[in-house]
């Protein structure tokens, strides 16, 4: 599903920062992979490149047989909407939208006529069936993150990326989120690549990939 070859990301400056120093990895369809490592190891930077939120300096990224780095900006935007789901550490919900609107808006942008019904179903799936019309500021951190997960799934993405999705959550909420990922992976065969630095999260995933100083250790 995902094939990364020799991915390099360098931030230019008087003293250039070498964030990724030639990362290569293969992730199979339906695999649930955790990317772990210390702060500054390059985990989030790597995920940003895979999620097409940033452009790497060198390398090759193939997702579902498409060399995504050859796509134009417009095509990358469309690819993000149709094929990728992304969950941010700080939820990244639209403050003016309700939970339901946050979830169905990406489908609405694709012209999906039953987006609302599917969004309601997804929110029910993540345990927020009674919070459809609440706005983000009316919800707890855990609830907001579950809304963000539901949003990331609305267009049936090929891959779901999650960048430290439990970093701002308490232990119970963190467990709820990871159990949800596990359920999605097992029930829907959803390919998931999640960045985390909590060792106990290993129990939920198929494989752990360790990063250190911009390279993959194992």
């Amino acid at each position: 599903m995902i094939s990364v070859k020799n991915l390099v990301k360098t931030y230019p400056g008087e003293v250039p920062t070498y964030a990724l120093k030639g990362v290569s990895i293969e992730v199979a369809a339906g695999e649930f992979v955790a990317l772990m490592g210390r702060s500054g190891s390059g985990k989030s930077t790597f995920l940003h490149q895979l999620g097409l939120l940033d452009t790497p300096t060198e390398g090759e990224v193939t997702i579902d047989s498409i060399n995504v780095l050859t796509l134009s900006e417009t095509e990358r935007t469309r690819f993000r909407l149709e094929h990728l789901g992304y969950v941010f550490q700080e939820y990244a919900l639209i403050a003016e939208f309700t939970a339901l609107e946050n979830v169905y808006f990406p489908a609405m942008a694709l012209g999906d006529s039953d987006a609302k019904d599917r969004a309601a179903h997804l929110l029910d799936l993540v345990g927020l069936g009674s919070r459809l019309h609440h706005q983000p500021h009316e919800m707890s951190g855990g609830e907001q993150q579950r809304v963000a997960i539901a949003r990331s799934l609305i267009n049936n993405p090929k891959v779901l990326f999650a960048d430290e999705p439990t970093a701002n959550l308490d232990t119970e909420s963190s467990a709820t989120v990871f159990k949800l990922f596990q359920k999605l992976n097992q029930d829907l065969n959803q390919t998931i690549l999640v960045v985390t630095h909590e060792p106990e999260d290993k129990q939920y995933v198929d494989r752990v990939v360790w990063m250190r100083d911009g390279v993959i250790e194992s």
Binding site: G51, L53, T74, T77, R78, F79, R80, L81, E82, L84, Y86, F88, A92, L93, I94, A95, E96, F105, P106, A109, R151, N155
Partner: peptide
């Protein structure tokens, strides 16, 4: 931030 989020989820500029 809202604009960044919209772009991140694939909404066209």
């Amino acid at each position: 931030r809202q604009i960044g989020i919209l772009k991140a989820i694939g909404i066209k500029e």
